[in-house]
Design a protein around this nucleic acid. Structure first.
Lengths: 185, 185
DNA sequence: ATATTACGGACGTTATATTGTACAGACGAA
DNA sequence: TTCGTCTGTACAATATAACGTCCGTAATAT
């Protein structure tokens, strides 16, 4: 359960059934057709913002209560369940452990770079900072025309709203923890 | 400035210009076409929820920061600016002074009923309560098979999630303040 | 049992969101 | 100037959101 329109679907259906309203009744209250309400609840449609607005107003509930996905207190992420991002002929792998969510200001990745592997990153959005902690191997980071070589246990923090590269010039696999941080809006 | 998609338009444009991003850059970051971004900013389109989601994620900002409309500290509502609702051959008029908004749990109306005028209200959503204060004239309210006649200065509070009617059986125009209240979700 | 009503979903049509391409103006560099 | 690049918008094509109508089922009443 990830996609936003499925969250909306669940929330809307739960609310409606909780209040014991029929699709038709909701249609009447909101000015949105019964068909559309049904499709939204079944996750078959991604309504426009004006439609969601009509629903929230007609039902007298807040916009966010429709799109808020109650986060479990505990969230377990297993390595094998993570969808890896690989490139440079598979010579590096990025594991998005905690990708961006609505109200979180950072995301957490683990990056593995094979011996000799190379990774060139586009600038992130302005203000973004990157925090890196090296767990295994050695990694050379180039940013701002500076070059820094980190070994296991070392860490670095830099403004990532400019091009930057990672190079594994060491003798073995490099593994680092990477945190992207986006300052307040 | 009322319509939700215009609020979104302003917020998005303000954010983009603040960050000094081009339409094309935003398109690249979000995966939403440049054309669509432009139309949204100009208020020419009501994007679907998945599109808004892509934008919020690509820009690393919260969903609500896109739709939140900073309320002014003071809000003046003039009678002549209010869009009246009239029926029963114009024998009653409803003035929506403070209609429902996202995080407000009530709305405020003023209702005028001419002598002899009659108003039959459909049930509101479950849990809704109605608070009435009579300012001028006399009004007879029927709800739950009970009938109550209020005169100037009287007030009543009742569960409005069932049919109810208002009748002006007095000798002059009746004016009341009506507050609809929606308990927590 | 049959009639009746209410409910949710299927279908075809219309409106509009979304995309890709093309275009005119602004700005700098040569 | 002229070229190139970058900006935001206009346009046509496509995908899909939104609607009205119809239908099958389930529940209730008679």
């Amino acid at each position: 359960m990830e996609e936003i329109h499925l969250i909306l679907a669940k929330n809307l259906k739960a609310f409606r059934e909780n209040k014991k309203l029929s699709l038709e009744k909701v249609a009447e209250l909101t000015g949105v057709s019964k068909t559309m309400i049904g499709q939204i609840e079944r996750g078959e449609s991604s309504p426009t913002i004006t439609t969601i607005w009509k629903i929230a107003n007609g039902l007298k509930i807040s916009f966010t209560s429709l799109i808020n996905h109650p986060q479990p207190d505990t969230q377990l992420v297993l390595k094998k369940e993570i969808q890896t991002l690989s490139e440079d002929n598979g010579r590096y792998r990025v594991y998005p452990y905690f990708p961006f969510e609505n109200d979180k200001r950072f995301e957490v990745y683990t990056v593995e770079i094979d011996k000799g592997g190379y990774l060139s990153a586009e600038p992130h959005i302005e203000g973004t900072e990157e925090l890196i902690v090296v767990f295994d191997g050695e990694i050379t980071i180039r940013v701002n025309n500076e070059e820094h070589t980190l070994e296991s246990g070392d860490s670095i923090r830099f403004k990532a709203d400019r091009p930057h590269t990672y190079h594994n010039l060491g003798k073995s696999l490099a593994r680092v923890s990477m945190i992207l941080f986006y300052p307040a809006e």
